[in-house]
Design a protein around this nucleic acid. Structure first.
Lengths: 124, 124
DNA sequence: AGCATTAGTATTATTTTTCATACTTAGTAC
DNA sequence: GTACTAAGTATGAAAAATAATACTAATGCT
């Protein structure tokens, strides 16, 4: 690993920042799942109307494009947060809902919402 | 609220999504403050060593550039989350710490960290 | 037959974010 | 008087995210 005995080549060895520097940082890991411009908004929307259909989500998040919404939903599905149920109907019907893992995010999201309600009323 | 008797002109009137569509959404507001790739990591770092100097933050977040770190810190300062204290020394010394408003984010961040610790161990 | 519907995909363009690199400043130590 | 330090700034390039637009597919309705 770090094999510099004299100090003219040392870079980050004088303190243990491993949980931040390396990839074991829970914040970094969490941000991989719920980070980005849309994911928390999508989850919030699905939380408040579960299951949610694609078209409903798109209406709720007025400014998202179809392409982006699809991409974000796929990532959330890939990460085990959402499930996607396709109905064999015409026109197509697809329902998104939180998986059990996704449900564990509900208190996290509620905490964020609560902060916004209390401290972010109109100061921006 | 819902005043569409015949269904051929309705667009967003069949349910009240105003808190998501308009800018009063606490999630949207919160994301303006703590959203983005770096802000939560910066706050986490300052939380765990408060006050924190610029150089310390940069070392902890190995992959951020000076320019980006400065920009993010300025936004957090602008939004009232951080304070910046300049010491009239050479070489310069600047300390960042959470404001009282910033302190109110501590439980939010801890909630996110806790979720990461519990549910995000190694599945990504 | 032709039209509307939903949940997409494909492609290209644009915007936003981040990065890389070089430069600055004022003291202090050599 | 030269080098070093910390915390930046300036500039341009690159990468990532997001958007705009057009297209598809299956089927029910008229």
């Amino acid at each position: 690993m770090k094999n510099n005995t004299n100090a003219d080549e040392q870079e980050f060895t004088n303190q243990d920042f491993s949980d931040i520097v390396e990839n074991n940082c829970p914040m970094t890991n969490t941000l991989k799942v719920i980070g980005g411009k849309w994911k928390l908004l999508i989850l919030h929307a699905i939380m408040s109307e579960c299951p949610a259909r694609f078209g409903e989500l798109k209406k709720k998040m007025k400014d998202i494009t179809q392409t982006t919404l699809t991409a974000q939903l796929r990532e959330l599905e890939r990460d085990g947060i959402l499930s996607r149920k396709i109905y064999a109907e015409t026109p197509p019907k697809v329902e998104y809902k939180l998986t059990p893992l996704g449900e564990t995010l509900v208190p996290v999201i509620n905490t964020i919402i609560a902060w916004g309600n209390t401290y972010c009323k109109s100061n921006l």
